[in-house]
């Protein structure tokens, strides 16, 4: 994944550099650039463009990037079953959920969101350190924490848009 976009194999990612390389690769190899070309070249373009998309998706997201690094190190990320057995992560997740459930106004939800975003940022910083120190056990726990935080932020954001819209945003049918 790192090699496809020519990025260094480490947790820290220069977002602007990642973007620049992603766009540059797609500009050269996207199937739109190969419409009149022979079948073999078009196949290659399709394959490479697919790989570039996947690499961008993995490297652009801290949780997926961490999971991928753990996989490379032969220490796959923890599964859901392991999580439920971790009382610290479980407690914190329940607390945040409660706070979100109690938040009624947009300002209250904003407060919960801001706190969660702060925690996610801190968690990412810790992850950077853990990977730099090759402390994989710590990295596994932190990756799991970050997964939960990300899910929570998404839920909170969704709640927030519903409150702002002033209606019970219906199903996306």
């Amino acid at each position: 994944m790192f090699a496809i976009l020519g990025m260094p194999v480490q947790f820290e990612v220069d977002a602007a550099e990642l973007e620049r390389r992603y766009f540059a690769e797609q500009r050269r190899f996207h199937p739109d650039r190969f419409t009149g070309k022979p079948e073999r070249e078009r196949q290659f373009s399709m394959q490479h463009s697919t790989n570039v998309n996947e690499a961008y998706r993995v490297l652009g997201d801290p949780v997926r990037r961490a999971e991928h690094l753990l996989l490379l190190a032969g220490q796959p990320a923890r599964t859901v079953e392991e999580t439920v057995r971790d009382p610290v992560i479980l407690m914190r997740a329940l607390e945040m959920r409660e706070a979100l459930a109690e938040a009624q106004s947009r300002a209250e939800i904003d407060g919960v969101l801001k706190a969660a975003k702060g925690e996610a940022l801190a968690c990412t910083a810790e992850l950077t350190k853990a990977f730099a120190n090759a402390d994989l056990q710590c990295a596994r726990t932190l990756t799991l924490q970050l997964t939960y935080l990300q899910k929570f932020i998404e839920e909170a954001r969704e709640r927030r848009t519903r409150v702002v819209g002033g209606q019970s945003a219906g199903a996306h049918s």
Binding site: E154, R157, E158, T161, R162, V164, G165, Q167, A169, H172
Partner: peptide, 19 residues
């Protein structure tokens, strides 16, 4: 129109963006 606006909010949320 409400339906269209609700869908718009969902898509913004998917994009992790606010209006």
């Amino acid at each position: 129109v409400d339906r269209a606006i609700a869908i718009t909010q969902g898509v913004l949320s998917d994009a992790r963006m606010d209006p």
